[in-house]
């Protein structure tokens, strides 16, 4: 910019200023006051603060709502959806339902077929803001029932009862890979017919990542 242009630039900036802002500025100057919030603004800020404080004491960690329409479209054969956080099952609900979930918690979604085996696992976790609503309007509400799956408590007894007579434990656990029950030999290639509940338990453990101590 040329030296002379500074003055012209200032004039152009002034010409482009919003008239309402200019009038507000003039009023402020003539009132001899700095930019100060009005009494009404103070009232609204105080009221908002009060409401926030009351809301916090009543509900310190406000929940969010989550629906699963995108997952239902993506995996049409899915019947239920699992909500997994840090390897723990927060709950499994019908895919057309909506649930209240803790805000700020990383949640991995897993679509499950009628046979109880995972059909699809999201690659990314979702994390909802307090009171964020991603529910499908009108969807029935479902409740989460957190379930922990322990290798020693829930899986090892099944393996001990049905598998270890012929297979080493390490060999069995290697068959848990690739941590998708539908593709895992541990679930799909058993010599003996497992009880439905046992098979579901094994499948759930594998689908949750086959964690073991």
């Amino acid at each position: 910019m040329d030296r002379d242009d500074f003055a012209l630039d200032g004039l152009l900036r002034e010409l482009a200023r919003d008239q309402a802002r200019d009038e507000a500025f003039l009023r402020r100057v003539l009132a001899g006051s700095r930019r100060r919030p009005s009494r009404r603004a103070y009232f609204f800020v105080a009221a908002a603060g009060l409401f926030a404080a009351v809301g916090f004491f009543l509900d310190p960690t406000p929940d969010a709502r989550l629906g699963f329409r995108p997952q239902a479209c993506l995996v049409p054969e899915a019947k239920t959806i699992r909500l997994i956080s840090k390897g723990e099952l927060l709950g499994e609900v019908p895919i057309d339902a909506q649930v209240r979930v803790p805000s700020g918690t990383p949640i991995l979604l897993q679509a499950v077929g009628a046979d109880g085996l995972a059909l699809w696992t999201d690659r990314r976790e979702v994390r909802l803001r307090p009171r964020e609503n991603r529910a499908v309007p009108g969807a029935p509400a479902a409740a989460l029932h957190p379930t922990s799956v322990s290798y020693r408590r829930d899986v090892q007894p099944i393996l001990d009862a049905h598998c270890v007579q012929c297979h080493a434990e390490e060999e069995l656990l290697a068959n848990a890979k690739p941590y998708s029950a539908r593709q895992s030999a541990l679930v799909t290639q058993t010599h003996r017919l497992l009880a439905s509940s046992d098979r579901r338990q094994l499948a759930l453990w594998v689908d949750l990542g086959a964690e073991r101590p």
Binding site: R13, F25, V29
Partner: peptide, 28 residues
């Protein structure tokens, strides 16, 4: 005087700072 001069004063301050908020503060 303020009514007559304020726009030119703002133009001057805008030429100096190129920032509307700062220019208003300086002129005020």
């Amino acid at each position: 005087l303020v009514r007559e001069q304020h726009r030119r004063l703002l133009a001057y301050a805008l030429a100096l700072t190129r920032r509307e908020d700062v220019a208003e503060d300086l002129v005020q």
